[in-house]
Design a protein around this nucleic acid. Structure first.
Lengths: 138, 138
RNA sequence: CGACACCAAGUCCU
DNA sequence: AGGACTTGGTGTCG
């Protein structure tokens, strides 16, 4: 079970991402300029990379429906089917991140996505939020 | 030139408002329970009522961007346009105060709004702050 | 239209 | 150190 979060000061602006499995085991990174959505994807992508293929099952916990619904509501299937166009027939955003991320998830074969409400007192979600914000200035 | 301020012990909680044009000429009131924002609106609303229409030009000086930006950044125009929904498509708060207040301001035709930073040593802003706090217990 | 996130600003308070 | 009251905006999807 890996918690992930992204932050972005200004949106667009300088951003950071973080994943964490415990108080002491976590990873972070940054990008500038970027968007909130890119940082949310990056956090989950890096988490999957970190624990794949060593772990036979991975659970990503994120407060981003953008990330979670891509898999749990199979947005990515529709994107493939429509040639990477969204429902509004516009090109899907952040394809440079989505494509390798989705490949990594499907290749692993056992990655589960869970949504948690942000800033609602959940200790691990709060932790990755702080780590992601701190990573902006790294 | 009228200085206005609102106070609220607890937010929400018992609140007070005040306007003042000088050390000796001022008005106050209270409401319980209420919020800081309602008291900020009330202070400015009562000030406009007090000097309208006797004075052909009125300047309201407040430390509340909530009050000042409603007029200086034309929030109220957007609210009308969207049927009293805010940018997040939620109902605008405190409509019972905003509607008559905005009407009074527009009817007068020459009310100017100026923002001052709170608690920054401005004598008249400090005065209305003290008056508003004192009004809570009235 | 709906949802989640990311931000920006000020005040009020504990 | 914390939360509540409120507004404006962007990033993205179905």
């Amino acid at each position: 079970m890996v918690y992930t979060d992204g932050a972005c000061s200004g949106n667009p602006g300088p951003g950071g991402w973080a994943w964490a499995v415990s108080n002491s085991h976590h990873g972070t990174g940054s990008e500038n300029p970027t968007t909130n959505q890119r940082m949310e994807i990056m956090a989950a992508f890096k988490a999957v990379q970190e624990f794949s293929p060593s772990y036979s099952s991975i659970e990503i916990v994120s407060d981003s429906t953008y990330v979670v619904k891509c898999f749990n509501e199979n947005w990515h299937v529709g994107w493939e089917k429509r040639g990477w166009k969204n429902a509004a027939k516009k090109p899907v955003a952040n394809q440079d991140l989505w494509k390798p991320f989705i490949k990594a998830v499907l290749d692993h074969g056992n990655v589960k996505f869970t949504w948690v409400k942000g800033h609602s007192g959940h200790p691990m979600n709060d932790l990755v939020d702080e780590l992601a914000v701190a990573a902006i200035h790294a």
